[in-house]
Design a binder for these strands. Structure first.
Length: 424
RNA sequence: GGAGGUGUCGCCUAGUCCGGUUGAUGGCGCCCGCCUGCUAAGCGGGUUGAGGGUUGUCCCCUCUCGCGGGUUCAAAUCCCGCCACCUCCGCCA
């Protein structure tokens, strides 16, 4: 949720922010009205309640006729209090519902525009020239089949489109990646976590996934639980309703969890292979910081994401995502995109967002600092998304015979294997 | 899934049966001060959190006893629903 003080003190800033996002500006005026009505109803209620209290105290000590007279007065008052209370509750929920639709204020540094208006920040490593090497690169589906690593046909048989089995060396590869990622994260000071993948509505709502992204979320209706699309949800909710000491920040968590996404509205997009699937596993980095610290932390998280891709020896670029593509919670987002030879372009393999106080305000995560309590800032960053990492590894490190070179850093986690050989 | 119990302002706890000076008792911890070669002990005071008013950190108001409703002039206290934890039973990895 955005800071409602902006609505009161600087509505023009909010209008500009909405405009930069391509979001509704009229909502600002609605917010101003709703906020004013909330304050008015609160004032009414508090005034009546104070009067009621005062009378109640008198009744307690009065007796006889005086008491009866007081009772007559206060009975009428009680009805008014009840009405005022209902009016306040109504005004508050209207404001809350309205505020919930407003996205976080995008950073001034984020490029303005839609999905295609990103800015490329860096490009590192160069895509291999397969023509010069004299062979046509295979895509990950073909490579995975030859290695006995990926089985999409049986995935579809069992669970439907966009499901897969990792088999044999494919399964080992994921476990190796997870293990390596966790050890790196541990070295950087993260606390390893294995969080729940099913969460209550509050966690989902608090992280901003029930708004415009709700269609992409799996819901278990019978128990009113949601399957998380990222462990960011469970990690953000981890400290909900808590007040953290400023000295304990930043707090960094690295979680391994499955991720479930309905991928609604992506019909026909990336239908081949395991690039876009309904379920994958991921190691996610998550930081709690103060608002001031969050900007530097964002850079650090990006640095760690890059270090990870460097050690997997993948060519990639980093983009500064445009305002219209930030989602609800982020003020700024960097995506790392690895080169995919089969597609001849860069594709997202990781992403880091600074959500500032947007999630913390909803989930009630506060920092106890010198200025009193204030909402914490939360940041998330992909370290290792299993399927896309496997796709990038197989395609970039393939050889003409369909074998795949294992980057040195990963070899100790794959029983020392330097090359994955086709089984058929 | 069934039966019973518990949930009080950091931690522990009184209060709940029998509604009203409870805007919640006491202890521990913590903070400030006093005392003292130092430390400890001792003595005095402070200590739930949130929102708002005034922005004259001085005060005032509202909310907050797991959460949400209800009854009542009035709810920590009575009633209903839910949640979490504990014990036992059943079922299952």
């Amino acid at each position: 949720m955005i800071d409602l003080r902006v609505v009161r003190n600087d509505p023009d800033r909010l209008r500009t922010a909405q405009q930069r996002r391509g979001a509704s500006e009229s909502v600002v005026d609605e917010l101003i009205v709703a906020d004013r009505s909330r304050r008015d109803t609160i004032a009414d209620f508090e005034r009546l309640r104070a009067e009621q209290r005062r009378l109640g105290k008198e009744i307690a000590s009065a007796s006889g006729g005086a008491r009866d007279e007081l009772l007559r007065q206060t009975k009428a008052l009680a009805a008014q209090v009840k009405r005022a209370e209902a009016a306040q509750a109504g005004a508050e929920s209207r404001l809350r519902d309205l505020a919930a639709t407003v996205p976080n204020l995008a950073s001034d540094e984020a490029p303005e525009g839609g999905e295609d208006d990103f800015r490329v920040l860096v490009e590192t490593g160069s895509p291999r020239d397969f023509a010069a090497e004299g062979f046509e690169p295979r895509d990950h589906v073909e490579l995975g089949r030859r290695l006995g690593a990926i089985d999409v046909e049986r995935g579809a048989k069992t669970s439907g489109a966009r499901f897969y089995y990792l088999t044999g060396v494919g399964a080992l590869l994921e476990l190796a990646l997870v293990q390596l990622a966790m050890e790196r994260a541990l070295g950087w000071g993260f606390t390893p976590m294995i969080p729940p993948a099913l969460v209550k509505p509050r966690a989902m709502e608090g992280t901003g996934f029930l708004g415009q992204a709700a269609a992409d979320v799996y819901r278990v209706e019978q128990d009113d639980l949601y399957l998380v699309g990222t462990s960011e949800v469970a990690l953000a909710a981890y400290h909900s309703d808590e007040t953290l000491d400023a000295e304990s920040l930043p707090r960094r968590y690295a979680a391994f969890s499955p991720c479930y996404r309905r991928e609604a509205g992506s019909y026909g997009k990336d239908t081949r292979g395991i690039f876009r699937v309904h379920w994958f596993d991921k190691v996610e980095m998550f930081s709690y910081t103060s608002l001031e610290q969050s900007y530097d932390e964002h850079e650090r998280l990006l640095g760690w994401e890059r270090e990870w891709l460097d050690q997997l020896e993948l060519p990639y670029r980093v983009i500064d995502v445009a305002t219209g593509d930030l989602g609800l919670a982020a003020v700024r987002k960097f995506d790392c995109e690895a080169w995919l030879p089969s597609q001849g372009r860069y594709r997202e393999v990781s992403s880091t967002s600074n959500c500032t106080q947007f999630q913390a305000r909803r989930l009630d995560v506060r920092v106890r600092g010198t200025r009193g309590n204030e909402p914490a800032a939360t940041l998330n960053a992909t370290l290792m998304a299993s399927t896309r990492t496997i796709v990038a590894l197989l395609e970039n490190h393939q050889d003409r015979d369909g074998s795949v070179r294992v980057p040195a850093a990963l070899q100790p986690y794959l029983q020392g294997r330097a090359v994955l050989e086709p089984t058929a």
